[in-house]
Design a protein around this nucleic acid. Structure first.
Length: 678
DNA sequence: CCGCCTCGAGTTCT
DNA sequence: CTCGAGGCGG
């Protein structure tokens, strides 16, 4: 980036970040998620590092902590001050932290670590004198915070008197921990807000913070806040010596009746820290509250103390953050992809950004309507997330970041692959040439894909090379390829050549339904192919040619789920001369049929029952589960409705689970499901 | 004709 | 997984 545009971008970032902060802090409005805001701050920080001449004192990156509000009395914290934590975002960050710490302490080993979940809440300090809760405050600037004692008293998880314990209760005990809100409470409060026509909150953290800052403790009490402690200080070193490790300290806190996070663990080494982090990154959705990472510290408290403080964070502890679920980035360009059906799909090319543990560089924009709905132009700053935690998607365009240099995207009038005219079909724009190179290519990928001929090792990359070298012109050619032809290609070994030939021969016999699906007829997917195979069974390709070319629209419409549109598409496909020739060629090269496993639905104990699967099952694959259900006469469908009999929920279920709950559909766990199968 | 239930098609990265 | 749209019953 050149100097001038960097300067302009820095200005824009500063201005917008301040605007978002103002909206949130002063006007109590959420314009943007904290994660997206972090993402913007990071961009600003990076740019300022690159162009230090543009750093100003009023930059959001120069700000330290929040100042206490006027309405609350101030409290001065116990020593050591209430620190924040340094962040690590990757395993590499963790390794360098580990090495630095070892060097600093001059030790070859650091002993065990304590891993705690990093709650996304509000840090507070509680003071107990002779076992009685006397005061509590927010972190503030680390030295002085707001006195929110009255509000903290309303939190049931915070005992007003410490429980009798076999351990001596110290005269003064200072506890630090996190006040947070469960997702359940958050939803309840938001529903209530909506009912009252009040503002909807963006995330539980904001509500927790807002609730603690209430001047009226009754409001705080109505929001069932929760609390976990993560440490204690009291009467200086004497206390430290009594409980020399984090684990021991936690035990003693629990014996006093103070909750600590039950999922915290003592681990042996950095490898186990990373395992702990990965496990929770994956399972964090299952917790009743939000976490944004883990906190790693030394189990040995004395050693931790020796690490001291760098800046305003302890050296011997670190926040190992998860990759955010959404981030901001820039749309650098919009390219067009032509699919199997000829649809032109616009795809955004993004400035690479980490989201949910992977680096995102592309995101589909689906169609022109979507681009208009978002109000997106090339060069825009956008928020990206991952739908269903997998597929990257642009959820919002931050129009305030426009510099005026953005360019509108225009759907081309002619196909970028072969130049044919582009026509509009519903929301889609399509290349009008059925023989368009891109369509042919995509059709080939489809033909050999998992649900069709399922030839392993014959993915898009390999097919491309075969096509480009003229080794094949259509799918049928794959079955007459010679080992020598393949091995002659650069970067192709004899072994892989042999494999492909062998695999093709093995897979040249398929079920009729797979065969029909492979043809890639518009509107004929897995289910419709299955229905066709069931209604018009044929033993071999010769018979198929005769029987299917005679099918009339009325014949087809007698099949359930086939109406005029689908019927028309099938008849049209079969009439095409080129397709007939292709079918004949397939027969010549030895493609043949074998019986479908479950063509007829017969009555079993599950007949008449409809199943929907969501989440991953432990014991068996999704395909195996479907097969089992079908064997017993049950039906497997893809979406939940009132007619669904059961939703089988594995680990990490998706939106179908929520829908089932809403519709009151019976939900089966894996165990119950297996019981039903036997 | 409307509304519900399904199916089809497209999608990213490791 | 999500969206759009085809099929079908009322």
């Amino acid at each position: 980036m050149d100097r001038e545009s960097a300067k302009a971008r820095i200005e824009k970032l500063k201005h917008e970040i301040n605007r978002y902060r103002y909206a949130y802090h002063v006007r109590d409005k959420d314009l943007i998620s904290p994660e997206a805001l972090d993402s913007l701050k990071k961009e600003l920080f990076d740019l300022e590092t690159q162009f230090p001449q543009f750093v100003t004192a009023d930059s959001p990156t120069q700000r330290i902590g929040g100042e206490p509000l006027k309405e609350f009395k101030k409290v001065t914290h116990a020593t050591p001050r209430m620190n924040s934590l340094n962040d690590a975002f990757s395993k590499e960050d963790m390794e360098s932290w580990f090495t630095r710490l070892k060097n600093f302490l001059g030790r070859s080993a650091l002993g065990d670590f304590y891993c705690d979940l990093k709650m996304d809440g509000l840090a507070v300090e509680l003071v107990y004198k002779n076992g009685i809760f006397v005061s509590g405050g927010t972190r503030g600037d680390g030295l002085v915070g707001e006195d929110i004692t009255q509000n903290l008293r309303t939190i049931e998880a915070i005992p007003l008197t410490l429980q009798d314990s076999e351990r001596p209760i110290p005269k003064e005990l200072v506890i630090r921990g996190e006040v947070f809100l469960t997702k359940y409470e958050f939803d309840r409060i938001n529903k209530e807000q909506a009912r009252l026509g009040e503002k909807i909150y963006a995330n539980p953290r904001n509500v927790a913070a807002g609730s603690l800052r209430q001047l009226d403790p009754k409001v705080t009490a109505s929001r069932k806040l929760d609390f976990y402690a993560y440490g204690a200080i009291g009467e200086g070193l004497a206390y430290l010596k009594m409980y020399p490790t984090r684990s021991a300290e936690n035990k003693s806190l629990e014996s006093f009746g103070i909750k600590v996070n039950p999922d915290g663990r003592r681990v042996k080494n950095l490898g186990e820290v990373i395992t702990f982090w990965e496990r929770w990154a994956k399972h964090r959705e299952k917790l009743p509250y939000e976490i944004d990472g883990i906190v790693v510290s030394l189990e040995d408290k004395a050693l931790h103390e020796r690490g001291g403080i760098i800046g305003k964070a302890p050296r011997a502890a670190i926040a190992f953050k998860f990759s955010p679920r959404e981030a901001t980035t820039i749309v650098e360009d919009i390219k067009i992809q032509v699919g199997r059906t000829g649809a032109l799909t616009p795809v955004a090319e993004l400035k690479p950004v980490g989201v949910g543990g992977v680096t995102i560089t592309h995101a589909s924009l689906h169609n022109m309507d979507e681009i208009e709905r978002l109000g997106l132009k090339i060069g825009d700053t956008v928020i990206v997330s991952r739908a269903g935690d997998v597929i990257p998607q642009i959820t919002k365009v931050l129009h305030e970041f426009r510099s005026g240099k953005e360019k509108s995207f225009v759907m081309p009038a002619s196909c970028p692959v072969d130049g044919s005219k582009v026509t509009r079909d519903g929301v889609a724009f399509k290349c009008s040439n059925p023989k368009c190179g891109a369509r042919h290519r995509e059709g080939l990928y489809h033909f050999f894909s998992r649900k069709a001929f399922n030839i392993e090792g014959l993915g898009p990359k390999i097919i491309d090379r075969f096509l480009d070298k003229g080794l094949i012109t259509d799918a049928a050619d794959i079955f007459i390829l010679k080992e020598g032809d393949i091995a002659a290609l650069p970067r192709f070994g004899e072994k892989s050549a042999k494999n492909i030939v062998l695999e093709a021969k093995e897979r040249s016999q398929v079920t009729l339904s797979r065969f029909i699906y492979a043809l890639g007829i518009l509107h004929v997917g897995e289910e419709t192919a299955r229905a066709l195979a069931r209604h018009f069974p044929t033993k071999n390709l010769k018979e198929f040619l005769v029987k299917y070319s005679k099918l009339s629209l009325d014949n087809l419409k007698s099949v359930p789920d086939i109406g005029p549109k689908v019927g028309e598409s099938i008849v049209g496909w079969l009439k095409e001369k080129a397709h007939i020739n292709f079918l004949k060629k397939l027969e010549r090269v030895g493609v043949s049929f074998k019986g479908d496993i479950t063509l007829k639905s017969f009555s079993g104990k599950l007949s008449g029952k409809k199943f929907v699967l969501t989440g991953a099952l432990e014991g068996l694959s999704r395909e195996a589960a479907k097969e089992k259900i079908r064997m017993l006469g049950g039906e497997v469908v893809e979406s939940v409705s009132k007619k669904t009999s059961y939703v089988v929920a594995g680990t990490d279920p998706g939106s179908k689970f929520d829908k089932a709950k809403k519709l009151g559909v019976k939900i089966l766990e894996e165990k119950e499901f297996l019981k039903l199968l036997t």
